[in-house]
């Protein structure tokens, strides 16, 4: 249809330059704020959308896969870098590196957290008698070096946006720690993932199972593995540095995870950081994503 008419209509197009970097960055920030719910001021006009998006994010972003049980304290050295894996959680050095490198995430409620949360700290929250799929929150309010306890998982659900966003009052006591008996259709967490049942239902009454005796050992082992992988020592590593680090850690930990070089970070992202996805749909298993981040930029 290339003819004089199309040519003339094109000439009538008002000038529209590409958006400036500032415009793009500004809109990207606002959009991603509503998408991820990452801490920041919530504008009055976006509040509803952001809270809804944040709730969805909380319910869906964290994943899990089976990990071996029978945890023992292991100290490994690989390439001159010591990675301490304990049942007690990330080491102070790992916690410091992670805090320096990653954005503080949200706490259990709709309030800014004081530290990054780990994907292994996610817990499902199921409301007794509510037919909807359970929501997800992070048990990330305590210092990272402190091992998670069953009480922390329960408290996270009792104070989470899963509860805050209910339109009617619900009972958060009693609250019972259970584990899932089937993969989460909505949330993706597979069988055995911690789930807190809020209200009077028992584990079996809510369709879940009583937790095994080592449930918290499993949770804390996942935290240790995740921390060892993401606590990269370089303050702003290149992609090659990060991939090399991840490979070293996986070898030292005897973990078999996929490495995804996603490279879909924010514009201007110059630091390549690893993120552990315990379940990652495209690959179906634990995956370490290496991606560009703007923080710290």
């Amino acid at each position: 249809m290339e003819d004089v008419i199309v040519d003339r209509v094109r000439q009538l197009a008002p000038p529209a330059e590409d958006p400036s970097e500032l415009q793009t960055a500004r809109q990207r920030r606002v959009v991603m704020l509503s998408v991820t719910g990452v801490a920041g001021p919530i504008g009055a006009d976006l509040g509803t959308v952001e809270k809804r998006a944040a709730g969805r994010h909380r319910r869906s972003r964290r994943h899990w896969a089976w990990l071996p049980t029978g945890v023992v304290m292991v100290a490994v050295t690989c390439g001159g870098i010591a990675a301490a894996l304990t049942v007690f959680g990330p080491t102070p050095q790992q916690a410091q590196r992670i805090t320096n490198a990653f954005q503080p995430d949200k706490g259990a409620g709709l309030v800014p957290g004081t530290r990054p949360s780990l994907n292994s700290e996610s817990v499902l929250c199921q409301i007794s008698g509510n037919p909807n799929p359970p929501g997800t929150t992070q048990a990330s309010d305590a210092p990272m070096t402190r091992p998670l306890t069953a009480e922390m998982l329960v408290s996270a659900c009792q104070h989470s946006d899963v509860v805050n966003m209910q339109t009617s009052r619900i009972s958060v006591t009693p609250a019972t720690l259970c584990v899932t008996t089937q993969p989460g259709a909505q949330t993706g967490e597979p069988t055995g993932w911690p789930v807190v049942v809020l209200g009077s239902s028992s584990c079996s009454g809510a369709g879940d199972a009583p937790p095994p005796s080592d449930v918290m050992a499993q949770v804390n082992r996942r935290r240790s593995v995740e921390a060892a992988i993401i606590a990269i020592p370089e303050p702003c590593p290149t992609k090659d540095q990060t991939i090399r680090w991840v490979r070293q850690q996986l070898a030292a930990l005897h973990e078999n995870m996929n490495i995804l070089e996603a490279d879909v970070g924010v514009p201007g992202g110059i630091c390549y950081l690893p993120t552990v996805h315990w379940v990652f749909p495209p690959t179906g298993g634990p995956t370490v994503e290496v991606n560009a981040h703007q923080y710290p930029g």
Partner: peptide, 21 residues
């Protein structure tokens, strides 16, 4: 992005310029 909302950032990066124009 249904399970990892941050993946939507790449959609923004790919198409924002055209939609802005």
């Amino acid at each position: 992005s249904q399970v990892d909302p941050e993946a939507f950032g790449e959609i923004f990066d790919r198409h924002f310029t055209a939609i802005y124009r």
